[in-house]
């Protein structure tokens, strides 16, 4: 078999590889080269590529920028919270849906709906939710119940982090749920029967059968939430736009360009590379760990 697959290997991956190189790899390599120059977006300061070469200058600049470091820390904290929250919620959704028969389609659609909405309207909706519904209606002193922490969530560095988590769980739990559902669907039903006959309860069944067989999905969902959380931009802009020290890394990179005239694309590019390396190390580590836990036939 091995031999057979090997024979076809290159032909089958060729189209994907071509697209990959053309659309992602080459631009990213070029972009990485730019991070060693004082590139300004439309020209190189100093004339040519070679003349504007600054070595690791941009990297040093990036690391000595407080705002960059702060956004790195802030993004990591957000990612930690979001990954846990989204995964648990998505897994809970899919398990619940897996256990019912009637109305599965409707619930699935409802949970998935938030994903379909474009960004333009969502900024308004969520600002309204946090600034009016939460602040004035639900959690104000004469509201449903008084919770100062849930008021003015967009006006405080810590609270805004949780506001962002609330918003992204709402948006992406349904998305990740789909992947868990696909995973659950591919678990052979007879394994459950066997476990049931052995007298295993639901909890035991979950840990002994479901979870191990769901590991491929866990790998995927963990990775995707990790990657998406690290890259989060639109929601950050929509909710606080970086006010009150709430810049996530992607917004910080964007602002590095806007904060300087002429625009400092070289440093922004260096920040992007640093960010890429950090995330790549973390998530590749995660993928290799969870992948080892997967069962193969």
């Amino acid at each position: 078999m091995e031999k057979y697959y090997r024979k076809w290997f290159w032909l089958l991956i060729m189209p994907s590889m071509l697209l990959f190189f053309f659309v992602i790899a080459i631009p990213f390599i070029v972009g990485t080269l730019y991070s060693f120059t004082s590139w300004r977006g439309t020209y190189f300061a100093g004339g040519s590529f070679l003349n504007s070469f600054v070595g690791f200058g941009n990297y040093i600049k990036a690391f000595s920028d407080e705002r960059f470091i702060h956004s790195l820390v802030y993004t990591s904290l957000y990612t930690l919270a979001a990954v846990v929250a989204i995964n648990l919620v998505a897994l809970a959704f899919s398990l619940m849906l897996n256990n019912i028969k009637k109305g599965v389609g409707i619930y699935r659609t409802i949970f998935f709906l938030p994903n379909m909405l474009g960004g333009l309207a969502m900024g308004f909706v969520w600002q309204f939710i946090f600034q009016v519904v939460y602040t004035e209606i639900l959690f104000s002193p004469d509201g449903l119940f008084h919770a100062e922490f849930l008021r003015y969530m967009t006006q405080n560095t810590t609270k805004a982090l949780f506001a962002l988590v609330i918003m992204t769980v709402w948006q992406s739990a349904g998305y990740m749920m789909l992947i868990y559902i696909s995973g659950l669907n591919s678990i052979p039903g007879d394994l459950y029967e066997a476990a049931q006959i052995d007298g295993a309860g639901p909890v035991r069944r979950f840990f002994k059968v479901t979870l191990p067989l769901l590991m491929p999905s866990v790998t995927i969902v963990l990775f995707l939430t990790l990657a998406n959380s690290f890259k989060l931009l639109d929601q950050n802009v929509a909710l606080t736009n970086g006010n009150f020290n709430t810049r996530l890394i992607a917004l910080q990179i964007l602002r590095t360009v806007q904060d300087n005239t002429p625009p400092d694309y070289g440093t922004a590019q260096a920040q992007a590379v640093i960010f890429f390396v950090i995330v790549a190390v973390i998530s590749l580590f995660q993928v290799s760990v969870t992948r080892r836990k997967e069962v193969e036939y």
């Binding site: 990959f20 631009p27 990213f28 990657a227 990179i253 960010f275 890429f276 998530s283 590749l284 993928v287």
Partner: peptide
């Protein structure tokens, strides 16, 4: 190859935007 594709998901779009558009 698997890791290449996986890590491609971690690249922020801004980092490839200009070179990509030029290409």
């Amino acid at each position: 190859i698997y890791l290449l594709f996986v890590s491609a998901m971690l690249i922020p779009f801004q980092a490839v935007m200009y070179p990509l558009m030029n290409m």
